[in-house]
């Protein structure tokens, strides 16, 4: 128990340090906010006017869940970049010689990135409301939807932590993450229904964790077209359970992995 409280205490101190950086370099936050707004506008007005959903329905409503998921996943890149930067500047060396819990730096990093993501989701929701997106369910379901998004992003942060500690160069982390995140978030049901995709891509899209989360959020916000039937695969039939499952699995694999990697990380 005392080790747990100590770990949380250290994690909180490091979270605070990272949040100070968000305050001191507001450009980062502003750019982090601008891109989701741009995404919402782009998709709503550029794609939204061209894409016709099978069975009808409002594409802008359909699309928001996809943009939400893509953006929060994309935002987790800062976890990897932040760690790579700390390593490059030698601060990880300082932390590693201090008597702090082994997970404190990573807990602090992922927590402050969660705070960042919370701000991003709030901005995006406002932008969505402006272009006509609405939540058509209850407050409870809406909150559950947001919670699921953030929980998923939190889990993905730990994957990015492993990448950041392994790659060590902030620029490379950034570019590598973008490639992976774009592949994961486009080969999914984020922007178009997955049924239309050709064979192997469809299988990938339907089992992609991003699809499960998007499907769950879409359901929880009531943004599916009328008469919509989810594809006949387990994760999309049970998207909430599948999302929770993915979150647990990712955390179980990547938390220990990144803690292990952190213990060997040095600035050179």
């Amino acid at each position: 128990m005392t080790t747990l409280t100590a770990a949380l205490g250290d994690g909180a101190v490091i979270t605070r340090r990272n949040v100070i950086k968000i305050k001191r370099v507001p450009d980062l936050l502003i750019i982090g906010m601008l891109s989701p707004i741009m995404f919402v506008l782009l998709f709503a007005y550029v794609f939204g006017s061209a894409v016709v959903l099978p069975g009808g329905g409002d594409y802008r409503e359909f699309l928001m869940a996809g943009i939400f998921t893509q953006t929060v996943v994309l935002s987790t890149t800062i976890t990897g970049v932040g760690l790579a930067e700390d390593m490059q500047k030698g601060i990880i060396d300082r932390f590693r010689t201090l008597p702090i819990s082994r997970s404190a730096v990573l807990v602090g990093r992922t927590t402050s990135d969660l705070v960042n993501n919370l701000l991003v989701v709030a901005t995006m929701s406002l932008a969505g409301l402006v272009v006509g997106w609405r939540v058509n369910t209850s407050v409870g379901e809406a909150l559950l939807g947001f919670a699921l998004l953030l929980a998923f992003a939190y889990a993905v942060s730990w994957i990015m932590a492993v990448v950041g500690l392994a790659v060590r160069s902030p620029e490379v982390v950034n570019n590598a993450s973008f490639v992976v995140v774009f592949a994961l978030t486009f080969v999914a049901n984020t922007f178009v229904p997955s049924e239309g995709l050709p064979g192997p891509l469809r299988v990938f899209a339907q089992w992609n964790p991003v699809s499960a989360v998007t499907e769950a959020v879409r359901q929880l916000f009531g943004n599916n077209p009328p008469g919509y039937v989810a594809p006949d695969v387990w994760p999309l039939q049970n998207p909430i359970a599948a999302s929770l499952g993915w979150i647990v699995v990712i955390l179980l694999v990547f938390v220990p992995l990144s803690v292990q990697q952190y213990q060997k990380a040095t600035s050179r």
Binding site: K21, V25, K89, G90, I91, D93, F95, L98
Partner: peptide, 20 residues
């Protein structure tokens, strides 16, 4: 190994907090 985005005071306070 100092944090660029913190002040000098905050840097030392951070280390002190982490030494508990």
């Amino acid at each position: 190994a100092v944090d660029e985005y913190l002040t000098a005071f905050e840097n030392l306070e951070l280390v002190g907090r982490l030494y508990r």
